[in-house]
Amino acid sequence: MGSNSCLNFAITHHCVYLSPSFSPKSKLHNPNPNHNQFLLSRSSFIPIATSSFALHSNHTLSHPRSKKLPLRNAPNFYVAASAKAEPLKVMISGAPASGKGTQCELITQKYGLVHIAAGDLLRVEVAAASENGKRAKEYMEKGELVPDEIVVMMVKERLLQPDSQEKGWLLDGYPRSSSQAAALEDFGIHPDIFILLEVPEDNLVERVVGRRLDPLTGKIYHLKYSPPESEEIASRLTQRFDDTEERVKLRLHTHHQNVEAVLSTYKDITVKVNGNVAKENVFAQIDAALTELLEQREVNSGSLTA
């Protein structure tokens, strides 16, 4: 192929390949100095860390938001342009004792997402004496609920941290009301999927009422499902004051009301998971939903590129 001939190109998923002859004198005009470029041998390629580029036979490489930029000695190089996949953004909700904590651990282990729980975040902010933490502490010391706007700001700021943006995030048990969901939407924060763990109320009550805490080690036991290893441990176990049947039913009622309100915001991306099975089977359902989401992204990305 001559140096002035048109470029032959093929598009496969996220990559665009140009395959004219190679010349050691070839140079590539870099439209963005932050992008990494390497001039290699005939059998190698020049990766361009960018996305959504269009190729033209008049030897230009253009981006939809930029002007066409000329490629110097364009016919004499081999180029691959690829787009980095967007990280996952996941919300998960479940009633007390639904197994949400266990599933969050399994999700973060496999997918490497940043696990964010509003309650933990609130305690960290208060301990760090941040501006939001100081405001929250004033309400907590009075025995009052921390206003939504303070918690929403904490969550928003955490979701926008570099690690969350790079790795993706798993937002645990938040939002809990339609107003909190609306506030996140106003900030442009929207999940890819909303996972709801469903467990019958009778089973939830049994799980909660049977829980016991070892004050010495902090380990949680269950009198039926995970009893203590010895009589010595059993003798020192305690029950949380709100793990009684009456209190747990009140908590469940509040949870169900909150979830119904939140689901109205995320109804199109909600996946309901049967949480009344072994934890491995619960995770298998979640894993299948996340895998399907990622595969669909691949298909959509390939269609756009083609």
Rank of each mutant, 00 (worst) to 15 (best):
E138R: 10
S62P: 00
H29Q: 11
A81G: 10
L250G: 01
Q257K: 12
I233R: 01
I286K: 08
N32V: 09
S177R: 12
K100A: 11
S179P: 08
S5N: 07
L263M: 15
S264M: 07
F187M: 07
A181W: 14
F9D: 00
V205G: 01
M1S: 11
R176F: 08
K68I: 09
I46F: 06
I107G: 03
S23K: 10
C6N: 03
L294C: 12
T238S: 14
Q257T: 12
L223A: 01
P70I: 09
E86M: 09
P24D: 13
M153H: 08
M1L: 03
Q161M: 13
R247M: 14
A118E: 02
D172I: 03
R211Y: 04
A127H: 03
S303R: 15
V205T: 08
S26I: 04
S82F: 14
A118W: 05
A127F: 03
R72S: 11
N58L: 14
T244L: 05
E144Y: 08
T238F: 01
A81T: 14
N73I: 08
A54Y: 07
L290N: 00
I46T: 14
P47S: 02
L204M: 05
S26A: 15
P215Q: 10
E292V: 11
D186W: 01
P31G: 01
S177M: 09
N281R: 08
K267V: 06
R251W: 08
G94W: 09
T60F: 06
K89M: 05
L213Y: 12
M1I: 06
G133T: 13
P200M: 10
G101C: 08
H56F: 06
K156V: 14
N132K: 06
I92P: 03
M1P: 08
K27G: 02
S93N: 11
T50C: 15
G168W: 02
D243W: 03
L304K: 15
K84R: 12
T244Y: 07
S93C: 10
A278M: 11
H14E: 10
Y174K: 13
R42Y: 10
K68R: 13
L237N: 00
N36Q: 05
A49C: 07
V199W: 06
N203A: 10
A288L: 08
A85W: 02
G2R: 12
D120Q: 09
Q180A: 01
C104R: 10
V277M: 02
S164W: 03
G143E: 02
P70C: 01
N36K: 13
S301A: 14
N32K: 09
G168P: 07
L204I: 14
G133Q: 09
Y139W: 01
D242R: 00
R212S: 00
T108R: 04
A183S: 15
L293N: 02
Q103N: 08
A74R: 02
E229N: 02
L213V: 09
L293F: 08
A284Q: 15
D148G: 03
I92K: 04
S5L: 10
A97V: 13
D242E: 06
R212V: 00
F38V: 14
D163M: 02
I195Q: 07
D172Q: 13
I189W: 09
V273S: 04
S235K: 15
A117S: 15
P87I: 12
T291V: 12
L122E: 03
Y17E: 06
R176C: 14
V248M: 04
P215C: 00
